[in-house]
């Protein structure tokens, strides 16, 4: 059923469809509507909502609920995510599934509340201590805020690992039509959970491996599942890339503006196409390489100082020249600005 919905609210609508049983969170602009929607909706069907005293507490409440096998989530923006990093590392170490939404804003420090994509390193590369990965999906529309939240719950359970929905203030705040239909969720078995029952009494959730060999073995096992995720879970979208000479790469809100810029540039006869990673970890390196190798050059656009850029470089391994254009501070490039950049790079190539 089509409804006009805010991105942040769509997250909770998706979460409900995914069988989310609990939300623990702390308000922060521009993510607060997620907590507000959770507070409004979850108790109505028997779910739990608790406003925690801090993001540190939120993520540890998530930890507790996840131990008990509940599909659980939290959401915040950059400063809150910084506080959660400790808990995310514990969740990853204890192999606990959960969904964490980061509606990115300007940083570092208090920065501002306008959109940035500058938490890429913190979310995609880690941020907490130790060897672990987050599964990261990057919605670019209100529809995807719901759909990719559902996917995040599925991936989190499948890999017993935190999954991050990495988005920004614009996608969180904007409204678009949302199509959702209720379908029954088959709750995954979690024989490892600790539920205070006779059957689960033997279970223990912990990230402690005191002996070096044990911890190494644990990490090897985690590594194996990360490799599996890299083989199975990459997702991306392409637009007008089949004959493209220039491939522009952007995720989230940037990919939307790039899409419009590609349309405009094509009107001028410029052969440009868009590659949009939907999963940021695992990064769709192979897909990107195949697309980029058909073209001559690549332009990466981000609302950051060049963070995803590093993954693009790794994916292309020097085989194509890569240019970067970033806006920061909450400034979002206009279509015209990106068309000009596209023209500049095509002209430079001639």
């Amino acid at each position: 059923m089509r409804q006009l919905c805010k991105g942040n609210v769509a997250v909770i609508k998706g979460a409900m469809l995914a069988g989310c049983g609990a939300y623990y969170g702390y308000p922060i602009t521009p993510a607060s509507e997620i907590a507000e929607a959770a507070a409004l909706y979850l108790p109505e069907y028997g779910g739990t909502f608790v406003q925690a005293e801090s993001e540190t507490a939120s993520i540890n409440m998530v930890y507790g609920a996840s131990c008990a096998g509940v599909r659980v989530m939290t959401a915040s923006s950059g400063p809150g995510l910084s506080l959660m990093q400790e808990g995310i590392s514990y969740l990853a170490g204890a192999e606990l599934p959960c969904v964490i939404v980061d509606v990115m804003r300007g940083g570092p420090g208090l920065g501002n509340i306008a959109p940035e994509q500058s938490d890429y390193f913190a979310m995609v590369k880690g941020g907490g201590h130790g060897n672990y990965r987050n599964l990261v999906v990057a919605p670019a529309s209100v529809q995807e805020m719901a759909d990719l939240t559902i996917l995040a719950f599925e991936l989190a359970d499948k890999y017993r690992n935190p999954a991050i929905v990495l988005t920004d203030g614009f996608v969180g705040q904007m409204m678009e039509p949302l199509d959702l239909e209720f379908r029954e969720i088959v709750a995954p078995e979690k024989p490892w959970a600790v539920k205070g029952t006779g059957e689960t009494r033997k279970n223990m959730v912990s990230s402690i491996y005191l002996e070096s060999d044990d911890l190494e073995e644990h990490q090897r096992r985690m590594e194996a599942k990360y490799i599996r995720a890299q083989q199975m879970e990459t997702r991306s979208e392409e637009y007008c890339t089949s004959d493209a000479e220039l491939v522009v790469v952007g995720f989230g809100i940037v990919s939307r503006i790039l899409r419009s810029a590609v349309d405009e540039a094509r009107k001028q006869g410029i052969k440009v196409g868009l590659f949009r990673p939907i999963t940021l970890w695992p990064f769709p390196s192979q897909e990107l390489a195949e697309t980029a190798l058909r073209a001559q050059r690549v332009l990466v656009v981000e609302l950051s100082n060049g963070q995803m850029l590093e993954d693009v470089r790794l994916a292309l391994d020097g085989k194509r020249p890569i240019e970067f254009y970033g806006r920061v501070g909450g400034n979002v490039p206009s279509i015209e600005e990106l068309v000009a950049k596209i023209e500049e790079h095509v002209t430079a190539a001639v």
Binding site: G21, A22, Y24, T48, V50, A52, T56, A57, S58, N60, M61, V62, Y63, G64, A65, S66, C67, A68, G69, V70, V72, E86, G87, Y90, A94, V194, K195, G196, T197, T200, R201, N203, M204, V205, S206, S207, I208
Partner: peptide, 24 residues
């Protein structure tokens, strides 16, 4: 302790216990 066991981060036991108790 031969009961269900959960080990948590430094200082966060009451928060984790909150998540557990609300679930169970």
């Amino acid at each position: 302790f031969d009961v269900g066991n959960v080990q948590v981060a430094h200082g966060r036991a009451p928060a984790a216990a909150t998540g557990l108790k609300r679930a169970c």
